[in-house]
Amino acid sequence: MPRALPYLLLLPATLFLVVFFLYPFVNVAWDSVTRGGEMTLANYQRMASHWKFPTAFWNTLLLAGIVVPIQLAMALTMASIVTKLQKGRSTLLYIFAIPLGISDLAAGLIWLAIFEQSGFLNSMLYGLGVIERPILFLSYQNTWVILLAIVLAEVWRATAIMMVILVAGMGLIPKEYGEAAEVFGASRWQRFTRVTLPMLKPSLQTALILRVILAFEVFAVVVALGGTQFPVLMSETYQWQFTMQDRGVAAAYAMVILGISVAFTLVILRLLHVPKEARI
């Protein structure tokens, strides 16, 4: 009995995952490769041949490609500053983490309230006399402004999650390493690149995987700010499922998102791998 006990204790959680995660997941996978009860790749063909698919695919990658590096740089900077603070460290962490407590749709709406035609930005510019009449920022004519707004909203919303992980990681690096590097001639920047970054790899791994996967799933912020002007994989999944009522193609989209998430996770794991003997 004592040998079975750990498994018994894990059973509820396992069951929960099987019923509410594995089962639907297998269903979706199955939906993506069947049509009218027959095995087929028709869903994938239909998805790929639709004119919006390449745009949605590249938009998603472009967004992740812009947002994640910016967030990484900002999170590293913020974490370095927070780590060096003597006082007020937790206060600052809480302030930085406020956007994390807001749902992504709400975050999208906040930034919509800034950028829309009657929004804060227009009111302010008009009030200052910079412009004569409100500008339509988020129109199909200037997609790049939509992209910029989405990037801003995403950076504002989700940088803190990376920062929190990196702060924890930096706290694990004994300060003697930095001092040794300092004594042996490393400048501030060299200490960061030659000591802090390599020793931060495990935390960087976690932060990047988490953030990259979330970036591929970006949805509410994009819909709130861009509507259908800026298609991404997730919003297309939504369109096919609910507007076009086509489960199969929606499932195919879901599998594509899964596919690129897994691929990037593997790449990050490989790139930031630390051999066992070289760990702290």
């Binding site: 003697e176 040794a180 004594v183 042996f184 001639g185 490393a186 070289a278």
Partner: peptide, 29 residues
């Protein structure tokens, strides 16, 4: 700053960098 003082130091907990080989540790400075 320390690096302009012409000193080298041995730390109590060694501070041998875990991510570098012994060769690169000795070569660090």
């Amino acid at each position: 700053p320390p690096r302009e003082r012409g000193i080298a130091m041995v730390f109590q907990n060694y501070a041998v960098f875990p991510h570098l080989t012994v060769f690169e540790n000795i070569a660090f400075g």
